[in-house]
Design a protein around this nucleic acid. Structure first.
Lengths: 146, 146
DNA sequence: GTATATGCAAAACTTTTGCATCCTT
DNA sequence: AAGGATGCAAAAGTTTTGCATATAC
């Protein structure tokens, strides 16, 4: 499905800001972006776009299931393209890099824990904050931009 | 250990705002409180305190390991007394109530997942967002104050 | 008495909203 | 042509900071 079709499918008109934002998430090496980062990147790419539009589009994409919103540590939300499979996140405390993982056993236990209490899991967020054990870890400090 | 001793242990002077905030977390039926909620509750109790002080003290308590900071869904952070055992959170999507749980199998798998990737888990956050399956769930809507 | 803590006000930062204009269909 | 989308500016909400005063030790 093309990007334009993808937008139409979710009932949104095909506009430049929406296409550029979608394109950014699909091509950026950084998979987790804040609204501010999206705005700065597109502006740097010469796109005439307002920060308010970025916020509106990100929220729309989230509601349509195209993006996932995360609240890692810190104030601002970051967004990520919702690809085929669900996954959780491991955040490196040295460099801030985010690794993704999926563990079937953890998923099953979550459902079980909820069921034991009379609940059914609708969604979940699991973040592991961890230190790299690799000798001479080449990662930059977490505050460094990527 | 008394509350005063607890404060001295972490290198903070024993002041009224700090004692009242600590006392609030130790006695409140609501275990998860935002800065604004702490401020409103203490003000209602007749304590003369500023919102800025609440933020400062909460941050100090977090750094001292007395409180844990959470970013559930939404913008503002909530704080919780760090009691004996670690636990994770199950948030009811009907009423916003937070249930706590601890699952040894999940904890073990988290360590394993990180180890497989060359990391050691320092901290983690796991939130389950779930729907109550109890017939005639008596819970209020999630926006209702508790 | 000295260093720390506080309250208030102002600032900084993130996100949302009002509105006139522009664009998609 | 009509309704939705955009950009800008202003507003709203959360958290931090500057500073004079007050408090703990």
């Amino acid at each position: 499905m093309s990007r334009s079709e993808e937008l139409k499918t979710i009932g949104l008109k095909v506009t430049t800001p929406r296409l550029r934002i979608l394109n950014l998430f699909e091509t950026s090496p950084r998979r987790h972006l804040s609204a501010e980062e999206v705005y700065r990147q597109l502006t740097a790419d010469g796109v005439d776009i307002g920060l308010a539009t970025v916020y509106r589009v990100l929220t729309q994409f989230e509601q349509a299931g195209l993006l996932e919103r995360h609240h890692f540590e810190g104030d601002r939300a970051v967004f990520e393209l919702r690809r085929a499979g669900h996954h959780d996140h491991l955040v490196c405390l040295q460099c801030g890099r985010v690794e993704e993982f999926y563990d079937e056993a953890i998923e099953r236990r979550q459902d079980q824990v909820a069921a034991d209490r009379g609940f059914a899991v609708v969604d979940h967020q699991l973040y592991l904050y961890a230190e790299c054990r690799t000798p001479n870890c080449p990662h930059r400090h977490r505050d460094a931009p990527a």
